[in-house]
Design a protein around this nucleic acid. Structure first.
Lengths: 204, 204, 204, 204
DNA sequence: CATGAATGAGAGTTCATTCAT
DNA sequence: GATGAATGAACTCTCATTCAT
């Protein structure tokens, strides 16, 4: 995913790449993908403009690298957020809280990815695949609940999952990107209540 | 919302503005807000580039005009989609179907608005206000149902409304912008089922 | 050969294109193809740098246009230089004089074309084709002389023509590009003598 | 001609210089003087880019060194090509064959020198001097033939020499640089025939 | 009013050359 | 000496906007 620019070999090179990456993320978050200027990234990293091209072929490659780093961080939850022993509701609640925390940490970048996906086919596809993967994962857990007689059997598990996943991600978006102020725990409570009700899961 | 440029008075002027507006929408949808070039809009409208400035002060004003026209079309549902006589479920179903139809008609433009909102404060605010207004309207109907004993009284009506509205709009986005293929009626069915369940509304 | 940039429609546009073309030729002749800067061409024409791109897509297209104009001028001899009524020697002499005059008028440009041909495949091919066409034309007149018993029949007409054409063109190059000072009539005399002798043409 | 950079003293230094020289020749031949990048030369030689400057002050000095090496090779014919005992025709034939062989071995470099001479005064002068020296040498042998009554006394020896030398060198150029396919012996035969005829040298 | 050529600030990118390690 | 990252001047090309015709 890194492209044709070769990896730096020296310690100094590795550090420079790191600082350019951090600067790029900062500038992308502040200005969006298209308005972000290579110059500003270099200024933010404190390097000359030519240095950028030692590490990245162009803006897109830099964005790829920023995105890859963020994705890794998002998939690798910082805290172990799984509610190991609880019932279905506790698990759903933990998942929702984990998602919201992660989204809040990366909110500005998520906004930019949304922007890029609206224009760039590559990122549009990426976004769709991520949505689908997320929905499929949740669909499996809905199926399990239905099999155990703990969820409404008349629902299509994948479609229900898509819609409920959409509910969570869009709520995160309006809160952390558009900036409607709502406390985290209120969101967790509401989303979990609705999710549980929607599937007709009996109380834990 | 139309801007500082004065309205055209002659019939020819009105037609010119119309054709520029249509061309602008086409180009914005195809290329996104930032990549859209005034030149291309003029080419698409079949006028010289200078003519653009007779009708719009700049690109932003043109986008405002496109957006205003689309919004009017979206708020003014083409078909009377209200289920006048039905029970709560029938009303919710009609609202969902109406929203999805309208979103589908304007999907590409919605994608662009998403893009613009990610960068432009004016449009970010606009989007948030629209979200809020939409959620507030639905919140009132939830309150009404609670008052009639037809919905779970333990839910915060506004927060529930926000989340359920998010579910519908994000589902529309993944379907019509990201392009996951799902039949309209499957969406209507799923969204309505979940919405009704989530509020614990008894069957009609 | 002009490329994708459309022809100017107004009188003013035509004049601008003309002046840019003249400026481009001047700069190409002075600095060579690769060192020539768009900026300098624009300065020489007295226009802003953006104006260049109204008429040419890039430097190569401008060079194509300069070259095409020069070629037309070279193929269309200014003076009618054909010795209508003379014998073979008179004809050869007239042809040599015509070629040298034309080369002298366009010497600097010929130097640049030589330079470009050394790097650019398109122009290398063009140059080869021009050499071949020139040689073939002369080959036909040698064949005619052989048929009339006026030239050494043991020579291969095309090979002889290639070599004699090379003699003339390279002599023109060393004189007018490299700058060895030799009077025109001395060159005409020498080249004609050698050409006539080489083919063993009897005196007129 | 080697430049200001001092000669390497160690064995390793000498090898390094050698490999850079070979790499430089390769890159100059492939890309031409101006497009040749120091980076590519270093890559081809397998050294870091800074190392180049240990051996050469800049690109021009490297080209000088490549050129000097090639010139030595060209003046020092690999095979003894002199026809010691033959008559005038045999000598001319041997000289032509030797020239063509040498040109063929160094064709790509000759193309680059042509390119450089078109722009760089230093190389333009060098080229003119080489042409002149070559022509002068041949002029002396023409004078000798005239003195012995073996060549047309009405020709100016220097002018005739210039033209005939031009014939040979330009024929070599169109064949080995522009790439018109003609067998070596056909060229030798034709050039020798024409040269001999042109001077009216009697058959051996 | 319409036209379309002209403008010029500003962005991206290249690469010879330097220099700390 | 060798390395390879850093530099930054220099250049090309874009396009919103203006304005003479």
């Amino acid at each position: 995913m890194a492209g044709k620019t070769q990896e730096p070999s020296t310690r100094r090179g590795i550090e420079r790449r790191e600082s350019l990456l951090a600067a790029a993320r900062k500038v992308f978050e502040r200005d969006g993908y298209i308005a972000a200027r290579i110059t500003d990234i270099c200024d933010a990293a404190g390097v000359a403009s030519g240095t950028f091209y030692t590490y990245f072929a162009d803006k897109e490659e830099a964005f790829d690298a920023v995105f890859a780093a963020a994705e890794e961080e998002m998939l690798h939850p910082h805290l172990s957020e799984q509610a190991a022993g609880g019932g279905p509701r506790a698990k759903i609640e933990a998942a929702n809280r984990g998602y919201l925390l992660s989204y809040r940490r990366n909110a500005k970048l998520m906004a930019v990815i949304n922007q890029v996906a609206a224009v760039n086919d590559h990122y549009r596809d990426l976004m769709r695949k991520r949505s689908e993967a997320f929905a499929r994962r949740n669909a499996r857990s809905i199926e399990r609940l239905q099999a155990e007689g703990l969820a409404d059997p008349s629902l299509d598990p994948y479609q229900a999952s898509r819609a409920l996943s959409a509910m969570v991600s869009r709520t995160a978006f309006t809160t952390y990107v558009l900036g409607e102020q709502v406390p985290l725990e209120v969101l967790v409570r509401t989303l979990t209540d609705l999710w549980v009700n929607a599937l007709r899961i009996p109380p834990d």
